[in-house]
């Protein structure tokens, strides 16, 4: 890994696309030769993808799903960081809250779906609440952990220089804890996607999860695969955006360590 010489464009393209193309070809060969009803050929899936998702469905089903995911995720971030900072700063509060928080984190988030359905009905609010209820724990616990492990020297320096109140919170506490907070946010993102899909599979008349299950029940196999593909692309896209954001937020951190 110490060699910094960049390989040629051809080799890089081969590395990037070689294996994916091979895999798609293998799938193609398999779907053509096998009689299995469940495995459509790649062109059939691409066609179904275009027909299914480049249509009003994109606005009626996909966008609201993503909007709910982002709303729930944002709310969970505010809640998690907002509660995590005071808990992390106070030794007593942390000791009292830790077992409770560990318990809530250990509950598999999907079991909260039927529970929240009961409490909040089956509208938009319920789905957002489900996403919040799953995403908040990793963010909260990582914030607590990050704030707890603040550099003692930095914290003493801040006290010496009389940095307190809001600027202490911003420049010392949140900054110092941000690598941990980002780690929590990353975990929360994958939990959030899971919950977005499941909450719609449970009780819904729209959304990505609902539509995919609808296709599956109607044995619209290529359409179902196109839905799986769309969810995959969504997961991939969100993780790319997240990594880009993380690099921006933590640029000071990496440069500091390098």
């Amino acid at each position: 890994m110490t060699v910094t010489e960049r390989p040629g464009l051809g080799l890089r393209l081969l590395r990037l696309l070689g294996l994916p193309i091979l895999l798609i070809l293998a799938w193609w060969a398999f779907s053509v030769t096998s009689e299995s009803f469940y495995v459509p050929t790649p062109p059939r899936v691409v066609q179904a993808f275009a027909e299914t998702w480049f249509s009003p469905r994109l606005i009626d089903d996909a966008l609201p799903s993503v909007a709910r995911l982002l709303a729930g995720y944002a709310l969970a971030t505010v809640l998690g960081v907002g509660l995590g900072v005071p808990i992390g700063l106070s030794v007593r509060l942390r000791a009292a809250a830790e077992p409770v928080l560990e318990f809530f984190r250990a509950i598999p988030p999907p079991v909260l779906v039927p529970l929240i359905m009961l409490l909040a009905g089956i509208d938009n609010g319920m789905k957002i609440l489900v996403i919040v209820s799953g995403c908040v724990w990793p963010i909260l616990l990582n914030t607590v952990e990050g704030v707890r492990a603040l550099d003692q020297v930095l914290s003493d320096t801040c006290r010496m220089y009389g940095v307190r109140g809001r600027s202490r919170l911003r420049h010392l506490v949140l900054r110092g804890a941000s690598p941990q907070i980002m780690a929590g946010l990353r975990q929360a993102l994958s939990v959030g996607i899971i919950l977005m899909v499941i909450s719609e599979m449970f009780a819904s008349s729209s959304g990505l999860g609902f539509t995919i299950v609808l296709f599956q029940r109607g044995f619209a196999i290529p359409e179902m695969w196109s839905g799986i593909l769309l969810l995959g692309l969504l997961g991939f896209g969100l993780s790319v955006i997240f990594r880009w954001m993380e690099r921006r937020v933590l640029s000071w951190h990496w440069s500091h360590r390098a």
Partner: peptide, 13 residues
């Protein structure tokens, strides 16, 4: 590419 695909997407399959 495969890693971030949420495994719940495989539920119908």
């Amino acid at each position: 590419f495969l890693r971030p695909i949420p495994s719940v997407a495989l539920i119908p399959l």
